[in-house]
Measured scan of single mutants.
Amino acid sequence: DWEDIVRFLRKLFELGEEVVIGDWHNHHREEIKRLIEWLEKHF
């Protein structure tokens, strides 16, 4: 279910905002944000 995936990604992203998950999070933050925005537009 796409909504569950979007919710999971958003939760992960919000957690990442508070607890910076090292370089991985910083590197992928923009991609995650773009992916969430893309999914919201399409689903």
Rank of each mutant, 00 (worst) to 15 (best):
K33V: 09
E31F: 15
L12S: 01
R29A: 12
G16M: 15
D4S: 13
D4H: 12
I21R: 09
E40K: 13
I5K: 02
D1V: 13
H25G: 13
L9Y: 02
I21S: 12
E18S: 13
E17V: 15
I5L: 09
R10P: 00
E3H: 07
H28P: 07
V6K: 08
K11T: 07
V6R: 05
F13Q: 02
H28Q: 06
L39R: 00
E17P: 13
E17S: 11
I32K: 01
L35T: 02
I36V: 07
E30G: 05
L35E: 00
I36A: 03
V19F: 04
H28C: 11
I32A: 03
H42R: 11
K41D: 06
G22E: 10
E14T: 06
F43I: 08
N26Q: 09
I36T: 04
L12K: 00
R29D: 04
D23I: 11
W38T: 03
R7P: 00
R34P: 02
E18Y: 11
L12N: 00
G22Y: 02
F13K: 02
R7A: 06
F8E: 01
L35K: 00
H28A: 14
D4Q: 08
D23F: 13
R34D: 03
E40H: 14
V19T: 08
K11P: 00
V19Q: 07
I32G: 01
I36P: 00
L15H: 03
E30V: 06
D4G: 07
R29N: 09
V20N: 06
E18N: 14
E18C: 09
D23N: 10
E18I: 11
I5S: 00
L35M: 06
G16H: 12
E40A: 14
E14R: 10
E30K: 10
F13S: 01
L39E: 00
F8D: 01
R10I: 07
R29C: 14
N26P: 12
V20A: 08
G22D: 07
V19Y: 03
N26I: 09
E31Y: 14
L39K: 00
H27S: 10
E37M: 12
L12R: 00
I21C: 14
K33S: 08
K41Y: 06
D1M: 12
H42P: 03
R10H: 04
E30L: 11
E3S: 11
L9I: 04
F43P: 02
W2V: 02
R7I: 04
E14K: 08
L15W: 06
F8H: 02
L12T: 00
D4C: 13
E14D: 05
E37D: 07
I5H: 01
E40R: 13
W38A: 05
D4A: 12
W2D: 02
L39S: 00
L15E: 02
F8L: 07
E14S: 07
R10W: 15
I21G: 08
R10F: 08
L15S: 03
N26E: 10
L15R: 04
K41W: 11
D4M: 10
D23P: 04
V20C: 06
E40I: 15
F43E: 02
I5W: 14
E31T: 13
G16Y: 15
H27L: 11
E37W: 13
L12P: 00
E14W: 12
E30Y: 04
V6S: 02
H25F: 15
L12G: 00
E31P: 03
I36L: 05
I21E: 09
G16E: 05
W38G: 02
E40Q: 14
D1G: 11
R34C: 09
V20Q: 06
W38K: 03
V19I: 13
L12F: 05
G22Q: 06
